[in-house]
């Protein structure tokens, strides 16, 4: 469903992605690992359509069609979700209002009617349950004064509400303690299905203990230099990235 072909992208004068290839099929979970500065966050931003990044060549296909010309919201309407590494605060906008507005915007774009209040509430309750969050959470200002763990849970909560076809989770595990990590993973696993795909971007293998990936990619200097299964993640944990760097050279 997602196919990235020879993707080159830069910010300003700086080239960050240098020919990325990646194919994600429905129902698959892919992990992308790599050291700091390897281009992981750039890759997720480019897929989501962030304007600061220029795609200089290559393509990103969704169901076989290029999405590079689409606005970020149009990509969201297709069913793309990005779990942010640093979720922003929007003071005065409650979690429930935000999620409701977002879900109805997506539905409207697909020609569906807005969800009625009771169905919306029911859906929110289910999502909260999945993430072991209490109801008070809904009336809080979006991400304002949230702990790191709450912010990340809120991302997964939104994902559960929006039911994307492809979710990219950008370092969702960073800054989480072991309990929060378990809950976040539980949220993701609860949403796994034959139709939903995931791209999990992470530094560490530990998240992958909970979310078992089908494929592990190593991103280095803007290129995917190694592809393997779960065991590759263990190898990285044990030996770091240097041996791959050497291998590539």
């Amino acid at each position: 469903m997602l196919e990235i072909r020879e993707l080159y992208a830069s910010i300003g004068e700086k080239e960050i992605l240098r020919g990325v290839n990646l194919t994600v099929k429905p129902g698959e979970v892919h992990a992308i690992m790599g050291p700091n500065g390897s281009g992981k966050s750039t890759l997720s931003s480019v897929i989501a359509g962030r304007e600061e990044y220029q795609v200089t060549s290559g393509d990103v296909l969704w169901d076989g069609k290029s999405i590079l010309e689409l606005a970020p919201e149009e990509r969201a309407h297709l069913g793309l979700f990005l779990g942010f590494q640093y979720p922003v605060e929007i003071p005065g906008v409650s979690v429930s209002n935000f999620v409701k507005t977002a879900l109805n915007a997506v539905r409207a774009a697909r020609g569906e009617e807005a969800l009625d209040a009771s169905s919306m509430l029911k859906k929110m309750r289910e999502a909260l349950q999945l993430l072991e969050m209490d109801k008070g959470f809904l009336s809080r200002s979006l991400n304002e004064g949230f702990s790191g763990g709450e912010k990340k849970r809120n991302e997964i909560f939104q994902m559960a509400m929006l039911e994307p076809r492809l979710a990219i989770l950008d370092e969702t595990d960073s800054g989480l303690d072991i309990d929060a990590l378990r809950i976040v993973a539980q949220g993701v696993n609860g949403l796994r299905s034959a139709k939903a795909s995931f791209v999990v971007i992470t530094h560490y293998q530990r998240l992958l203990d909970y979310i078992i990936p089908d494929v592990v990619h190593v991103l280095l200097n803007g290129r995917i230099v190694k592809v393997g299964d779960k065991s590759l993640a263990y190898a990285l944990e044990e030996r770091g990235y240097d041996w791959i760097k050497k291998e590539v050279e």
């Binding site: 606005a71 942010f84 922003v88 507005t101 977002a102 915007a105 939104q158």
Partner: peptide, 18 residues
Amino acid sequence: IGEDQIFYCQQRGLNMEA
């Protein structure tokens, strides 16, 4: 108003005006 905030909303499906 940060571009970060706007992009965040857009990623969730809102257009820029919304």
